[in-house]
Amino acid sequence: MTFNPAEFIDRWGSNIWQATIETFQMVGIALSISIVIGLPLGVILVLTRPGKALDNKYLYQFLNVFINVIRSIPFIILLFFILPFTQLIVGTSMGVRGVIVPLVVYTAPYIARLMENSLLEVDKGIIEAYEAMGMKTRHIIWHVMIREARPSIILGLTIATIGLIGATAMAGLVGAGGLGDLAYRFGHLRYEEDVMIVTVILLIILVQGIQSLGNRTAAWLKKD
């Protein structure tokens, strides 16, 4: 069997295009929502630590355990485990819409952890200098902690995004499609090797692209 690009595109082009769009949709939407949930969670994790601005042992311990529990569940299990919850929130458990909820549940706690790590790296002295200047805690969070942690936050989000792309491969199980699903259904189940190889190559390019974009942005933000 020889590979004929023109014929391949003719036959599979629209499927692959469709799957790419779906992957971008799932990753884009799930990532955005996960950041909106994960970043504040990360901030709360840092601020409720013993000795920090909003020191609260119980909230800190609760979040800590809660995040660990969710992060211990493999995505594939999570996907089915929270089906009723998904149904309740978006009205369906199928398609791109249906998979966003489990993707967010999977990614947001991970992002919270990554954010916590990034924020903890921020020099205590700088935060203290701003406290000494009489700045409000919310201003310190935004203008000092998050600002100074940006390079590290970007690198964390890069890792989270790549993890998310991996998780979307399983989204096919609830009919959400995407590149991973395409490779699995046609390439693996129907022995269309070409499709599998091309989609895998596309995924590699995507992951590589995101990683170098992340690295570059972080380096640019770092300034030292």
Binding site: V144, R147, L221
Partner: peptide, 11 residues
């Protein structure tokens, strides 16, 4: 207040 390690925003 000023400090031994300056405590400026690096970014």
């Amino acid at each position: 207040m000023i400090f031994q390690h300056f405590n400026l925003l690096k970014t």
